[in-house]
Design a protein around this nucleic acid. Sequence first.
DNA 1: GTTAGCACTCTCATTGGTCGAGTGCTAACG
DNA 2: CGTTAGCACTCGACCAATGAGAGTGCTAAC
Lengths: 342, 342
Amino acid sequence: MEDRKKRILQAIIDDYVLTAMPVGSRTISRKYLMNLSSATIRNEMSDLEELGYLEQPHVSAGRVPNAKAYRLYVDALLEEGPKPTREDEELRQKYLNRVSHLEDVVASTAQALSDFTHYASLVMMPRQEQMRIATLQLVPVTRALALLVIVTDGGVIRDTMVRVSEDLDADALYAISRMLSERLSGKTLKEVQSLLKDYADHAPGDPQVLSGIMELSGQMEKQAAADNLTVSGSHNILGFPEYHDAEKARQLLSALEDKDRLMSLVHGTGGLELMVHIGPETGIPEMTECSVALAEYRVGQGKRGAIGLIGPTRMPYARVLGTLRLVSRALTGVLGGEEDAE
Amino acid sequence: MEDRKKRILQAIIDDYVLTAMPVGSRTISRKYLMNLSSATIRNEMSDLEELGYLEQPHVSAGRVPNAKAYRLYVDALLEEGPKPTREDEELRQKYLNRVSHLEDVVASTAQALSDFTHYASLVMMPRQEQMRIATLQLVPVTRALALLVIVTDGGVIRDTMVRVSEDLDADALYAISRMLSERLSGKTLKEVQSLLKDYADHAPGDPQVLSGIMELSGQMEKQAAADNLTVSGSHNILGFPEYHDAEKARQLLSALEDKDRLMSLVHGTGGLELMVHIGPETGIPEMTECSVALAEYRVGQGKRGAIGLIGPTRMPYARVLGTLRLVSRALTGVLGGEEDAE
DNA sequence: GTTAGCACTCTCATTGGTCGAGTGCTAACG
DNA sequence: CGTTAGCACTCGACCAATGAGAGTGCTAAC
């Protein structure tokens, strides 16, 4: 595509991002490309429409950029890499002085992110399967119930109740814990499951505990795949003119509450630091008019989570991606992922 | 107030709950109280307006019931007690076969509640301060960090990282855990704090651990007051005609994300099983046009949490309260509170 | 005390007309 | 040949006028 067409398309996108109104040829000629007349712009716009980058709501309205247009724009963006703005710096400052649980850090990051950008934000915790067990301990709760606490290398804690035989006292549980802990540390959950199967034969511990752990690890795997995705600040969605229609907004918001479907979206982040799903690319019908920008963060060795922002397709992608990249790097830094912050 | 006035007011409320439109005298005379003419109703309505139960959006619209009207209605309702409907039974069935962590049970209850009723739902976890410690255990995480797990009598688990001196190995930590556990079990968090102060003098354990626990219990108290309130299904709000205006909806939704303010609302449930805040009674400006119905549930001895539904003031209070009561009782049952389910 | 009837008020949806923004096309220009 | 000026045309937004409908308050009769 000729350079001029690109510049015009860019101008249209910029203006549309700003105003959320169809952009006319005259606007472009006056505000963006003063050396060209509106008639010329009209011709080019007509071409761009034919190429599939623009759409016209009705015959005498301006043009509106397309998913295809944003995609072109974003792809260029992703290559050169956005640079942080002053606001980003502020956000970064605000947040660098906290150290705590993974859950808390990530959740409050999401909160801050949505408060700050006025978009809805999304957080996916790292998938638990990939985590390796650091320690494991049984804490007695009642005579027949114990809490199995598993600490993983990323500082993530998981726990579930397991039923234990009644004649095990605290000391016995501790002994079992130590033994299991020694043998299982460094393993992933998947490995634990198969290991335990063999193990059950030689059965040096309480068989009930073993089966408890078996059940737990299965349960944890299931839990790992669900639940660890949260959306916050979804009310920000309502601030956008494209969602002034209550019914539309309702549909989007309920789609955002359906974690399972969102999950599949976030999953597709095949190893890229930044990525964007534009409109229909999300694959979720209710989300054809909005985009999801995602950034990956890391915890420990190679465990990946994601944070993201959700807004109308008409997002200021450069800004949004810049902020996300910054925050995800800071997260990775704070959480001891292998990549350096900044 | 005369019985007839009450009946008319009731009819107005019923119709308004159904239609969300101002109710005229003719409607009442034809649909609800066929033995009275519209003129009579008009006279009564005029009286009711003077008494402060009704309002007129404009001179020739019908009447709209007031917070005061709903209050009268709900008070009567609370006395006689609503009865469960078929739908309630269905909800109850759906949910009786789960046993798990407090957090999970309560959260999924909230989810189910909002899905089912199509209102936004709210859950408050029991205040942690009131909880008594059952066991306490230190789980080593790294050389210098341990996870302090506190199990309370209600099966609620809290944990935080504490820094421990590097020359304590797992066994030493266990020994400390046992000792602390023995001395602290049965105490509330408040008590632990003051106890530890005295305790620090005789210092039989690692002083670092002690100060860690001190810090933690303070932290937990703070945490207890925040964070344990969640709202789900808020998208349902957008389904109501009174929130078809995007700006209004946005304000309400952001108010619902402000846990602190909501907290104060829920707190006022001074020991009643059911309660309702109608419109301005909520004390939250953004919520003058909606009501919050709350029901209490119990965990262990005397620890109280709350579940609730949030909708427009024009809620079908009888249904809503019935459902809430049912669910809260079931919750209390499942979670081993002292009151019996059903 | 209740009701029928009537005049009055106010909202809402409809209609028609105007305005302005924006397009596409054509013809002229460098 | 690309660019531009000009013009006719289209379409939505806005406005005012209009009329129907819903609902009220009041009065007088039952």
